[in-house]
């Protein structure tokens, strides 16, 4: 069933099929030139179109990182489903985490159009070869964290994904359009949780402020290393896979978020944060990139726990997947055998 669902969505595309479109008589150089011209012309690249191997691998890297982030991102928020303080909050959180599973599935399908299997991508995650967003390696310690994740983390994701919705690769761009709609909803829900806490009891307000304090800097780091230290940015910008640099996205996120914090009476933990009248943007203090790289390299507070949780789910589910495959094969054989 789990495999069938993938093919049913029409998102599985074998490598052979992808390469079929390549006209036999054309040289790589010509193809490359034609591809670059299409990019420069603002055209959308589709799965069956010829593309340079490097473009394909960069997209697989980006899309799979994105899908993995959705899946690993289910864990910190899932941590509070069983403790959500009201039935409505319980249902909205469960639905939100479920949406993330859906996003992961959708982007894995998108990545499969580039000629790679979901099983292989999952293996890359579980073996530690693939990355996922650093933000999900931080712990969720109180109910307010659920609000702040929706507000900051989904907020930052929207800033990033709104731009990716114009990416040159069609399946990725279309996935981003759909996903952004849901992320907007999540962000509103998260902000509403925080607004409710901020006007609640003193203990609730303190809970909200504490969560803001803990998540602000990791959320800024989530938008990626500074442009001066981002090895992939130039190439990805040229191919219109990325449309804005990490620093541009970060500034946009800060400019959107500061007034929202002010509106609910919460303080962002940066004494240097102030509006610059010349740029009409907020200046902010130095980011601790040492912490960012430590988390990216596996030394964040929850890296090991997150990966272990995914490995456990995968291992514990192995017999279930095998049963589904065995049953499907039996059914197939029965259907193929001559009718009695």
């Amino acid at each position: 069933m789990w495999r069938a669902a993938v093919t049913k969505n029409g998102c599985r595309q074998s490598r052979e099929k992808v390469m079929e479109k390549q006209p036999a008589a054309t040289t790589d150089e010509d193809l490359n030139a034609a591809f670059e011209a299409r990019i420069a012309n603002g055209e959308t690249i589709e799965p069956k179109d010829w593309m340079p191997e490097r473009y394909r691998t960069q997209l697989i890297r980006m899309m799979s990182q994105h899908a993995h982030s959705e899946i690993v991102g289910m864990l910190p928020e899932g941590n509070w489903i069983t403790r959500a303080p009201s039935l409505r909050r319980k249902m909205t959180l469960l639905a939100k985490v479920q949406d993330e599973a859906g996003h992961g599935l959708y982007i894995y399908c998108g990545a499969e159009t580039l000629g790679i299997d979901r099983a292989e991508l999952v293996d890359q995650l579980l073996s530690g070869r693939a990355k996922y967003s650093s933000i999900f390696n931080y712990p969720t310690l109180t109910w307010a964290d659920i609000g702040v994740i929706g507000w900051f983390v989904d907020g930052a994701a929207i800033v990033n994904q709104t731009v990716l919705a114009k990416a040159s690769y069609g399946p990725y761009a279309r996935a981003m359009i759909r996903i952004c709609k849901e992320e907007n909803f999540h962000k509103k829900q998260g902000y509403e949780i925080i607004a409710t806490l901020a006007r609640g009891t003193p203990a609730q307000k303190a809970m909200a402020q504490d969560a803001v304090n803990r998540w602000w800097w990791p959320s800024l780091m989530m938008l990626g290393p500074s442009d001066t230290d981002s090895p992939n940015t130039a190439e990805l910008m040229r191919w219109r896979v990325k449309r804005k640099t990490n620093d541009e996205l970060r500034q946009r996120f800060i400019d959107l978020t500061v007034p929202q914090a002010e509106a609910v009476g919460l303080t962002l933990p940066d004494p240097d944060l102030k509006l610059n009248p010349e740029t009409n943007s907020y200046d902010f203090g130095p980011i601790d990139w040492e912490e960012f790289w430590a988390v990216v390299k596996g030394n964040g507070p929850c890296n090991r726990e997150r990966l272990q949780a995914r490995r456990d789910a995968h291992e514990n589910g192995r017999w279930v997947r095998e049963a589904a495959e065995a049953y499907a094969s039996k059914q197939q054989r029965a259907a193929q055998s001559p009718a009695a």
Binding site: A101, D312, V320
Partner: peptide
Amino acid sequence: SEWCGHGPILEEDIALANIA
């Protein structure tokens, strides 16, 4: 809902959350 994020197959994670 305790299965959410820990299901054996992504599709089942989604299905169980729906039923929950």
